[in-house]
């Protein structure tokens, strides 16, 4: 089981770092540019760009939108790998051997995804770093103003809120794709369909839970 967990950490967590880092850095930059371009009132302090970037990245972009991207990458991987095992009778082979296939296949993925908040923490850091780079190199405001912005009115609970959401989404990312993979029927075409369906439902559940958790934790 330890080997399976380590393999799933490699596949699901380490394997997602590249895409999360890339997207976070550039989307953080875009958030900064969009915010800066839409501020034309001289009464608004230039540090607002940093503030808006921090809030957008920590509250929504890193936990929620990264999770939807990961639903596409990790969710499809989980559904298609378990679905292919179903189609090629590998799950039947486990059952015949007397192994609880549900536990054998899904438990390691659930444990591996407990490390998902670390991916999101890296996404938060790189999102803000990308914003800072875009802000400074694009000439939208100075480095000092951006840093003042990201320190202004910092509420530690917002980070806690983001990580609570991330834990919930990690569970969703492990279970819904596994369900669609494990209980699929048919052949190769159905594996593709199951991957698509699992992505759609994982995204829908993440968006709905995001709304409910925000309502419960922040309002």
């Amino acid at each position: 089981m330890k080997t399976l967990i380590l393999k799933d950490i490699d596949d699901l967590i380490i394997g997602s770092l590249g895409i999360v880092a890339f997207i976070s850095f550039f989307v953080g930059g875009v958030i900064t540019i969009q915010t800066a371009l839409n501020i034309d009132n001289p009464l608004i302090p230039p540090s607002l760009v940093g503030f808006a970037t921090r809030q957008s990245v920590i509250l929504e972009f890193a936990p929620t939108f990264t999770s939807i991207i990961i639903a596409g990458k990790v969710g499809s991987f989980i559904t298609s790998s378990i679905g292919t095992m179903r189609v090629t009778e590998q799950i039947d082979a486990l059952e015949v051997m007397g192994i609880n296939s549900l536990n054998y296949l899904i438990f390691p993925k659930t444990v591996a995804l407990l490390l998902y908040p670390f991916v999101i923490a890296i996404g938060m850091f790189l999102g803000i770093l990308g914003g800072m780079a875009a802000c400074v190199f694009g000439g939208f405001s100075s480095l000092e103003d951006f840093i003042i912005g990201i320190q202004t009115d910092f509420t530690p609970f917002h980070v806690t809120y983001a990580f609570i959401k991330t834990f919930v989404f990690a569970f969703v990312l492990a279970t819904i794709p596994s369900f669609y993979g494990y209980y699929m029927k048919g052949g190769a075409l159905e594996v593709g369909k199951a991957s698509t369906t699992s992505f759609v439902w994982t995204s829908v559940v993440i968006i709905l839970l995001n709304y409910l958790l925000t309502q419960m934790l922040l309002s």
Binding site: K7, T84, T88, D92
Partner: peptide, 21 residues
């Protein structure tokens, strides 16, 4: 007891069902 019995069963599936990984 079913688990013990299954340990005494070997199965060759139509598509071999070898674990890809």
């Amino acid at each position: 007891q079913k688990r013990d019995l299954r340990a005494e069963i070997g199965m060759v599936f139509q598509g071999s069902a070898l674990f890809d990984s």
